[in-house]
Design a protein around this nucleic acid. Structure first.
Lengths: 336, 336
DNA sequence: TTGTATGCGTTATCAC
DNA sequence: GTGATAACGCATACAA
């Protein structure tokens, strides 16, 4: 493995000149540049980035913390992050936290140990204070999920409006008893979606029934169990709004097991628009998040901090889209 | 940000001693160690790994190249890799190549530039010669997919036996016209699965009909289209064996659109056993790969090279499992 | 325009 | 058992 020294010797110039060529400095004569490039070619030289990183105290690496890549919601998001990062000369380190705070902290060590220049949280387990502390060490951005009150940039959709829209659609379809499958966490998205659900009911003059809300953990089985519970009510729901597609699909399994049909007996609405939503039979109606753009925007927010352009936290809201497919009855097609 | 120098000054020892404490050297007095640890605590010191990496010319980082994390097949696999890597003191860099050779090469630059100590290929686009060249630079392992003839370790299942088993099962269920949805690539797994399919037919005395093989690209739509083609044959298949679960699910969509039912009219068998296979309705019969173990084993193979324990390439075959669920008719339940 | 010299933070090789 | 000090490979301030 040859070093910059070897190249300098071969090209009969100083290491400084080689370094200049490597970094496209304008103040090096074309002839000199040529002979350096020739030496690089001859020696098949590859700069050792460890040296550069140490010298510059930067790694051109972004830490990306997410619960698990097993959740297909993150696939497109990561793609958006990856593309934007590459465009800016950065690479990413994808880390599964399993929604475990201590795992998250272990990965943040990499930041403290200078192995990454910045971090994007997809669903921070850290509390507001820790998040603020992290942002003091390195540029930090929250994407999709975020902690309210933290002085840390974030990008997300308007979860309240999205949930309200989704439930309003179900109401317009003629459903008035609408079940909600939520999660027992304190994520802003969860709370906002729940609020959107209640607001839609309220505006339609439908009284909120706490029995119609069941809880899961975003997983398939939890959606199945939550729906079983809702279906066991004396007055079962005519529609179910779940805060994740996977839970919605679990709910459909439960509904079918009870001998009911989708969507004629019960409509089901999901959230996220993961790729499976379209593959499922029936294709799932859902709230589509602009996943690629969310990821891309998160990186842009981070870049602005990395470039020291902006130290102030920014909050960006991206548009969502209600996607109606086969798991909800169409307006006007309801029996009532 | 304090450095090792600051700690040395604070603890009134040399940087060498601090370094020894940091690296758990046995030859440092308990008292000295204590005072160093105290200084570290006071200064809230974090070692800068860039310095260590440069000095040791290692990064404790493993490059993991896969087509895309959007393919859920890789979720558990990555988990296995991650856990094993962490256990060995390594972190991983997950890289989506989009099955694009040039993207793969870009990521391999990270290896040449010493930003990673080794690489695991999940589905190498590189040819045998390039793969051999890479293994000369750094420890290299192929996981699941591999190039035959490359002097590079690999771990996978016996794709021939697995496919043969799957097709034999369909035959035992009474199906004799069995369609195959494959891919037009040169992956060993593809070829072996095709061979297993043919071998099962042959042993059952069923003549191979080239018309019964259609091609896709592992994606949902491609499975859908391939099945459409198979269904348009004069003598349509009684069962379909796809080499990916996602294509199998696409095939089911096509079958249902043609007014046929799963599994009574047509049985469908997938491959991989992704999480969605169990969530789908009907739950998909498929060949289950030991995903977590495949990932774990790949790291172990790599570690042996990193430790210089073993330079010779090793080939490991892990057991698969045929999982029968609702998308195939049960033995004895066939109409014939 | 190019070269010299220094330092980034750490570990390792020597002395002592 | 501990301390000086020389690398590791590169970028950059300054000198020429």
């Amino acid at each position: 493995m040859s070093t910059i020294q070897d190249v300098a010797k071969e090209a009969k110039v100083s290491v400084a000149t080689v370094s200049r060529v490597l970094n496209n400095s304008p103040l090096v004569l074309p002839d000199t540049r040529q002979s350096v490039l020739e030496a690089i070619r001859i020696l098949n030289y590859q700069p050792n980035l460890l040296g550069r990183n140490l010298r510059r105290t930067e790694t051109k690496m972004i830490l990306v913390l997410l619960p698990t890549i097993a959740n297909p919601f993150y696939s497109r998001l990561v793609k958006g992050i990856e593309d934007a990062a590459h465009a800016g000369g950065y690479n990413i380190m994808l880390c599964n936290t399993d929604s475990d705070k201590s795992r998250e902290e272990v990965y943040l060590e990499l930041l403290k140990k200078r192995l990454a220049d910045g971090v994007i949280f997809m669903a921070p387990e850290l509390d507001v204070a820790d998040l603020d502390r992290t942002s003091l060490i390195s540029p930090t951005v929250q994407c999709c999920e975020y902690r309210e009150g933290a002085k840390v940039s974030h990008v997300s959709i308007d979860n309240f409006a999205a949930a309200k829209d989704a439930v309003e659609y179900l109401i317009k379809c003629g459903c008035s008893r609408i079940g909600h499958i939520s999660c027992k966490n304190r994520f802003v998205s969860t709370i906002q979606r729940k609020n959107g659900y209640r607001k839609a009911l309220e505006e339609a003059g439908i009284s909120f029934d706490p029995e119609l809300t069941a809880y899961g953990d975003y997983g398939f089985n939890s959606g199945y169990k939550a729906a079983k519970k809702l279906l066991s009510l004396n007055n079962r729901p005519e529609a179910i709004f779940a805060i994740s597609d996977i839970m919605a699909i679990g709910a459909i399994k439960a509904i079918r097991e009870n001998g009911l049909r989708i969507p004629s007996d019960i409509s089901v609405m999901g959230f996220d628009d993961i790729s499976f939503a379209l593959m499922y039979d029936p294709p799932l109606s859902t709230v589509s998040q602009p996943k690629y753009e969310l990821g891309k925007t998160a990186v842009e927010l981070l870049m602005r901090q990395l470039d020291k352009q902006n130290k102030e936290p920014e909050d960006i809201i991206l548009p969502y889209k209600l996607v109606i497919r086969g798991s909800t009855i169409k307006k006007g097609e309801n029996i009532q």
